[in-house]
Design a protein around this nucleic acid. Structure first.
Lengths: 131, 131
DNA sequence: CAGCATCCAGCTTGATACTG
DNA sequence: CAGTATCAAGCTGGATGCTG
């Protein structure tokens, strides 16, 4: 496994490969709601509906689905208390924090670059938008 | 703009808000093909079809679309030479490199954690998969 | 409160064919 | 080579209604 590989990567897992499971996880993490969910949980554990309010625009279904995916991947821990009314807290696992930190770095990078992005968009639209 | 904000962020742009343009850019970056495209271009400029081979599974249409979005956001520079046959090179802008670096950090973090993720999945499926 | 099941509209995507 | 145009299919995601 050393002579025929592309120079992409030497790791055992390679997102660039279509069939690599890491691509799935990356999509859970970077997906529409995954990233925001991890970001919200990075500051501390939250209950289901708290999370729902925090992540502006997410539906019950999507949040539930996202949470399951992240829990399955071992990034989020679900703590259910058999009380009445039920109370369920979600929090990041250590692994989840690792990932969330990188993700937040990316998010802040993008947020910080938005002024430039907006300028670039305006220029692009001006040049090509007309045609 | 200091007393009424949620404690989410003090920045001008906030991905957590549904209507913030940064969410769009983040989605271009983390989207299904955006991330892989940025990752591929981070190592150097590539032509359209080189990119297509590099990003396993992307269709002509999706790559084209992705490239346009990234170019519009000012993350990718498109260099077309009016030769015959045509030759077009794509490369990251300085801003694109900034973003790509954070993204790669995330990708490598996820790739490196895949063993743990797979274990977590197995446990999850074992516990709940049966029901 | 926490969540699942279902239905359905609409957006995303991939195949295919065509252009410069 | 480097794309664009078009169309059908499939997945995504929201609304609703119900359970424990």
């Amino acid at each position: 496994m050393s002579t025929t590989t592309q120079d992409q990567d030497d790791l055992a897992y390679n997102v660039f490969a279509k069939a690599c499971p890491s691509r799935d996880t990356l999509e859970h993490v970077t997906g529409r709601w995954g990233g925001l969910t991890l970001g919200a949980l990075h500051e501390g554990s939250l209950r289901f509906n708290e999370l729902r309010r925090r992540v502006d625009g997410v539906s019950e279904k999507m949040l539930s689905q996202t949470l399951h995916a992240l829990e399955r991947d071992g990034l989020v821990h679900r703590e259910a208390q058999p009380t009445n009314p039920p109370r369920v807290d979600y929090e990041l696992t250590p692994l989840g924090h690792q990932v969330a930190e990188r993700l937040l770095a990316l998010i802040h990078c993008v947020e910080g670059a938005m002024d430039d992005v907006l300028v670039a968009r305006a220029r692009y639209d001006e040049t090509r938008g007309a045609l």
